[in-house]
Amino acid sequence: MNRTKRYTAGFLILAAAVLLLLYLNLNIGSVKVSPAEILDILVSGDATDTNGSIILSIRMPRMLSALILGGALAVSGFLLQTFFANPIAGPFVLGISSGSKLVLALVMISCMTAGRAISSAAMIGAAFIGALASMLVILLISGRVKKMSVLVICGVMIGYICSAVTDFVVSFADDSNIVNLHNWSMGSFSGMNWSNVRTMAIVGGVTLFLTFLLSKPMSAYQLGDTYAANVGVNLKVFRFELIMLSSILSALVTAFAGPVSFVGIAVPHIMRGIFKTARPHVMIPGCFLGGAAFCLFCDLVARTMFAPTELNLSSVTAVFGAPVVIWTMLKRSGGRR
């Protein structure tokens, strides 16, 4: 019963935080829109005047992107941590985001050079291929070395290599859109439109739903391969599903917002601290809400802290995320909780 209370309280707090941040993201900005006016605009759906267009065409899509992508990123991190039984795994540290970034940059530049527009689906596809390529390298390494520190170091190195190649490619691509590309490659939720939001809601929604359906085998997997296989988990199939789902989720984020650091690794830790459980049934929705709140908050900071200059999203998520990781590591090495 105690646990049920903790879960309820945790979800209520997270939901309240998300709602508050959603409101703040609509309210705060270079143009301040009063609550009454926001309500008015939302109800009427009128985007013809300036404030209406700011709220409905700029802030709403951006805020919803932060919500969906932040949640997806945190869940992706939780899946990777479960998969590798490694608390410092995440799409960014393992180089998966950077793999997506590289392939996506290549595809975008070749499309720009050919003068063709690139569709959302193609962007997600390219990011997914990049994510899988990085994942494959990580899997090859983890098959040889079981040490989690080695795995993480290799992931970070893969990330650097991919980023270096991306920078190289970007520097030599001649196009006026390079500025955009550069912004995107540092992580940002800016410039989202409703069509982007629709795509990410559909892809993210379906993937997250499928992920939630894996809660049961995931809980058995947390007890290790042997016991999971013993209770009837088909390890090969399960591992494949886990890799696919986490890659889709992180690819989705990179496709729209670029590589965003530390959300995937820090948020699951914060959620463990709140819920005090490893149960996927609780952790998956918890991580989604937590990741959403975290990204809504970081995006708010990124665009308002030094307005009109906008900060890189990844810089802000790092400032708030990295200490969480350090704190977790210290707590772990200082004996069991």
Binding site: S215, K216, L223, G224, G232, V233, R272, A278, H281
Partner: peptide, 26 residues
């Protein structure tokens, strides 16, 4: 082999044994 699952209660660990008998969501 030692297993050291984090933040799993003994009840969580034991109930994994019911895995073959429970439904989709366990």
């Amino acid at each position: 082999g030692k297993v050291d699952p984090e933040l799993m209660t003994c009840m969580d660990v034991i109930s994994i044994g019911r895995y073959p008998y429970t439904g989709l969501m366990g």
